[in-house]
Write a protein that binds this DNA or RNA. Structure first.
Length: 472
RNA sequence: GUCCCGUUCAUCUAGAGGCCUAGGAUAUCGCCCUUUCACGGCGAGUACAGGGGUUCGACUCCCCUACGGGACGCCA
């Protein structure tokens, strides 16, 4: 048996991390077993499905590298097939027409809730024949009465549901469109899906689907309901928790490999291992090892992984990804030092590409103003002498190189009989405008001789103003 | 309310009856390295929801309670 899994999102929004993880698990499972992975768009809700959402989902899948062997298959293209099955169900007595108004159903629901019972359809139209068979109606699946339905779940084991808890669900709306529980069953059956891996918000749908499958004399697939992802506060993940859209993580400077690695470890583990390449995930992943309990999304750990992958990546690759982020800050990285060199200098210092762009602007343009704290601490009148000396030394360098810069700083420190830090730190603030930067040599080198001298002059002017202020 | 699922450090998790004085990772806090910030190294604190069983022995098995989540749509 060839393993066939699917990811079946409804196009009513962007691809969020919960869906992305489900997709990842399904994808990994198919890849691990040399099977196929199908992408199916569940767009039967004509009102809420949008083309933008379809694009957003496709874009997210592509960015994450979750390629599919079949699809995207759109359910709206398969209405004919669903109707065929519905007719079959009707003919076999497994379904019936229901003419109940929404008002009646709402009322029914309310009374049931008030009586503290589970809201269910009361089978009114099964007992009473309508006078006009062609009047507007929906079609309901006739759920078996009595007995249990057993859902065999790879993650949770056998779960029994009493048929009496289930009601006769609508499989076709008044407008003629089929509903989720019907389409999912027909598709999984037609597409020979062997393993249905999905969020456990679908766990309660499973028994209904098994019943429909039985009515169709079809074998149910193997189910695996993965627990949901919660926000960092333990509540259901929502926009309120920050980025939940996969594409937003890209915008915020995350690498897909970091997100993938983070997601695979959410609810799944392989001993103590934290870092997984795609190949490792593929070979090690197993549904059996997925946890039953829901987990909370923790951005800090994602950031750690992101930093890890930024650190490990090829600088050129990072440079390509970083360029657009610099662009957003109004910087053209082709005008200035080699971006790859900048990346090499910053690689260990950023959690995200956005952060890296932010701490790299001074390589390309003069800072707007000094970081107040850093200036206050380092650009003091006592630093003026060293600053002047170092300016002179730097100005005298003929071939601008890290070595030459290093020697210049060394010499000044030696001449003044102070530690290197006494010279380097004020110099750093003078050149980059803030307290932190990569090593002083590489920083000055990449900033360039001319810009360095210009900025040192600016710092000296700042110190002078300050000295006068203190004096008066 | 009814049904379903779940519960190990703040967070992600290891743990398949004795290996557990419960391990790792992130975060936090120290120390070291150091020209800053990072990186790296070393170290610290923090958890088996509670109560009953079963057993020579329970984080591991069973039951109850509490808490959390999900479902109850002419949404998926």
């Amino acid at each position: 048996m060839t393993v066939r899994t699917r990811f079946a999102p409804s196009p009513t929004g962007y691809l969020h991390v919960g869906g992305a993880r489900t997709a990842l698990f399904s994808w990994l499972y198919a890849r691990k077993h040399g099977g196929q992975f199908v992408l199916r768009i569940e767009d039967t809700d004509l009102e809420r499905s949008t083309a933008e959402s379809v694009n957003a989902i496709l874009e997210g899948m592509t960015w994450m590298g979750l390629d599919y062997d079949e699809g995207p298959i759109f359910q709206t293209d398969r209405f004919e097939r669903y109707n065929e099955i519905i007719q079959q169900l009707l003919d076999d007595g497994h379904a019936y027409k229901c003419y109940c108004s929404k008002d009646r159903l709402d009322e029914l629901r309310e009374t049931q809730m008030a009586n503290k019972v589970k809201p269910r359809y009361d089978g009114h139209c099964l007992k009473n024949k309508a006078e006009d068979a062609d009047a507007p109606h929906v079609i309901r699946f006739r759920n078996p009465v009595g007995g249990d339905v057993v859902v065999n779940d790879l993650i949770r084991g056998k779960i029994a549901f009493s048929n009496d808890e289930l009601d006769d669900l609508i499989i076709r709306r008044t407008d003629g469109s089929p509903t989720y529980n019907l389409t999912v069953v027909v598709d999984d059956m037609d597409m020979n899906i062997t393993h249905v891996i999905r969020g456990d918000d679908h766990l309660n749908n499973a028994p209904r689907q098994v019943n429909i499958l039985k009515a169709l004399a079809a074998e149910p697939p193997i189910y695996a309901h993965v627990p949901m992802i919660l926000g960092d506060d333990g509540s259901r993940l929502s926009k309120r928790h920050g980025a939940v859209s996969v594409m937003q993580y890209r915008e915020e400077g995350f690498l897909p490999e970091a997100l993938l690695n983070y997601l695979v470890r959410l609810g799944w583990s392989n001993g103590d291992q934290e870092i997984f390449s795609i190949d490792e995930m593929t070979s090690l992943f197993d549904i059996d090892d997925v946890n039953k309990a829901p987990s909370s999304f923790n951005t800090e750990k994602l950031e750690w992984l992101n930093q890890h992958y930024i650190k490990e990546a090829d600088p050129e690759h990072i440079a390509n990804l970083l360029a657009p982020h610099l662009g957003k800050l109004g910087i053209d990285p082709t005008q200035g030092p080699d971006l790859i060199k900048v990346v090499e200098a910053q690689q260990e210092r950023a959690n995200t590409l956005v952060e890296m762009a932010d701490i790299s602007t001074f390589f390309y343009e003069d800072y707007k103003e000094f970081d107040e704290k850093a200036a206050k601490k380092n650009l003091r009148p006592v630093a003026a002498e060293a600053m002047k000396k170092i300016r002179e030394a730097l100005a005298g360098i003929e071939t601008w190189s890290e070595d030459a810069i290093h020697s210049a700083i060394d010499d000044v420190a030696a001449a003044l009989e102070v530690k290197m830090g006494k010279v380097a730190q004020p110099l750093r603030v003078a050149v980059v405008g803030r307290a932190a930067s990569p090593g002083i040599d590489i920083t000055l080198f990449l900033v360039g001789q001319e810009a360095c001298l210009r900025r040192i002059d600016r710092a000296l002017a700042y110190i002078e103003v300050r000295a006068n202020e203190t004096a008066s």
